[in-house]
């Protein structure tokens, strides 16, 4: 399974739907996508990871990089994830303290804090 990426706009936010495996091979694609969005003036991102089957530390690095980039523009990067196997790596790395993690895209879109 490769990486699938699609984006859509919801008001002032951009939803990035990611599917498949985010690893050392596919992470550069996600990185490019996030860089393109920020370069294009999209500073409020919701990354929907419900269809992600695998995420490693390279993928985490790309998400952290995305967060840094949107923060430079006072933006936000929210994650949508309920899968235990994916949440586990956020927990063991302490990144649950860094990313707002939501149960649904609607919840992420409505969040304002």
């Amino acid at each position: 399974m490769d990486l699938s990426l699609s984006t859509r706009t919801e008001g002032d936010r951009t939803v990035v739907t990611v599917g498949g495996e985010i690893d050392v091979y596919t992470a550069p694609k996600l990185r490019e996508q996030l860089i393109d969005l920020v370069s294009g003036g999209n500073y409020h991102l919701v990354v929907d990871m419900e269809s992600v089957d695998f995420l490693d530390s390279t993928g985490l690095g790309v998400l952290v990089g995305g967060l840094k980039r949107v923060r430079a523009h006072e933006g936000s990067l929210r994650l949508v994830c309920t899968q235990e196997r994916i949440l586990k790596i956020f927990r063991i790395t302490g990144l649950t303290k860094v990313f707002p993690i939501h149960a649904t895209v609607d919840e992420a879109l409505a969040a304002t804090d």
Binding site: I35, S39, V64, K68, R71, A72, T93, L95, K97, V98
Partner: peptide
């Protein structure tokens, strides 16, 4: 040790878009 990693510090430094991708982690 992961306890030595400061998760907040990882994301604290803002960077410009033009910068080449640094080693983030």
């Amino acid at each position: 040790d992961l306890d030595d990693l400061d998760a907040q510090a990882l994301t604290a430094e803002a960077e410009s878009d033009s910068e080449p991708m640094p080693d983030l982690l």
